[in-house]
């Protein structure tokens, strides 16, 4: 019996499940009683105002923090005990190495994605495997492969990190505000890559976003959180009222335009 059958999941399988997940410190809950599932092949956007706990949810999903109450299941296992990391791709909003003159080239960073445990001979393997080339080409960074990662624009760095995830051949890709700091052309390129990965390669996508327009256009499912889960359902079911409540602002003009443009 597989993990998914045991959990009574659908035929497609559940990649990620929050069950009354709560996380907080010093008696303040950053996120509270979050319950929803992410099915294989879904494209989920996580919306919410600043400080609403979006990044915390991603960190819970990756087992980087443990829920204080409830549980988070990644492919049926407790996220913080999960070990089968090749199934998971992660693109953080920013990486520490970008700020420290990290000298590695693009192809070195993408090769990091191949990590499969202790291998003392890795230091001497200087060649770049075919899978790394394919991943770099898939996101359009093959021409930058010899450049230092710290010398690239934010948009290019995001794509390198996506390539680093793809080389692992993941089932699910989690991205934390991948569009932040990226210009309009770069954003369009990013969304077209994500769309292709989701529809053609069947990779599940969970993306934290600020960009309501893009979410309405790209995502199949939307989860709105403001410490608690405010809305979870198909992107076209979300109402102006719910978005206004979420951000605490009347957003008539913006939302009106977007809803009509994308329905």
């Amino acid at each position: 019996m597989t993990v998914n059958e045991r959990n009574g999941s659908s035929a497609n399988g559940v990649n990620l499940e929050f069950r009354n997940a709560t996380y907080g410190y010093e008696a303040i809950d950053v996120v509270k009683d979050i319950s929803f599932t992410v099915e294989q092949g879904d494209f989920v956007a996580l919306l919410g105002p600043n400080g609403s706990g979006k990044t915390t949810l991603v960190r819970l999903a990756l087992g980087l923090v443990n829920p204080t109450r409830g549980e988070v299941l990644l492919f049926g296992a407790q996220a913080h005990r999960f070990r089968d990391w090749h199934q998971v791709g992660y693109v953080p909003q920013t990486v520490e190495g970008i700020h420290t003159q990290f000298p590695a080239t693009v192809e070195e960073i993408v090769s990091h994605g191949l990590y499969k445990g202790f291998d003392p001979t890795r230091f001497w393997k200087l060649g770049i495997p075919e899978s790394v080339r394919i991943s770099m080409e898939a996101v359009g960074v093959a021409n930058l492969r010899k450049r230092r990662i710290s010398a690239l624009s934010t948009g290019q760095q995001q794509r390198v990190l996506i390539a680093r995830s793809l080389v692992r051949d993941p089932k699910i890709l989690l991205l934390d505000e991948p569009e932040a700091g990226v210009d309009a052309a770069g954003q369009e390129q990013l969304y077209s890559i994500l769309r292709r990965l989701n529809t053609e390669d069947g990779i599940t996508i969970l993306m934290v976003s600020h960009d309501i327009g893009a979410v309405m256009r790209e995502a199949k499912t939307v989860a709105c959180i403001n410490r608690t889960l405010v809305f979870h359902g198909p992107a076209h079911h979300i109402t102006q009222r719910e978005l206004s409540d979420l951000y605490g602002l009347p957003m008539d003009v913006l939302v009106h335009d977007l809803m009509h443009e994308h329905r």
């Binding site: 980087l64 990391w85 520490e96 590695a104 994605g113 445990g117």
Partner: peptide
């Protein structure tokens, strides 16, 4: 440094990314 080069490289680049890669 030679034997643990991948682990050292990954965790110097980004701690969270390294953890999520199984380092």
């Amino acid at each position: 440094v030679v034997s643990f080069y991948p682990e050292l490289a990954q965790s110097s680049f980004d701690t969270d990314l390294a953890r999520v890669s199984g380092v």
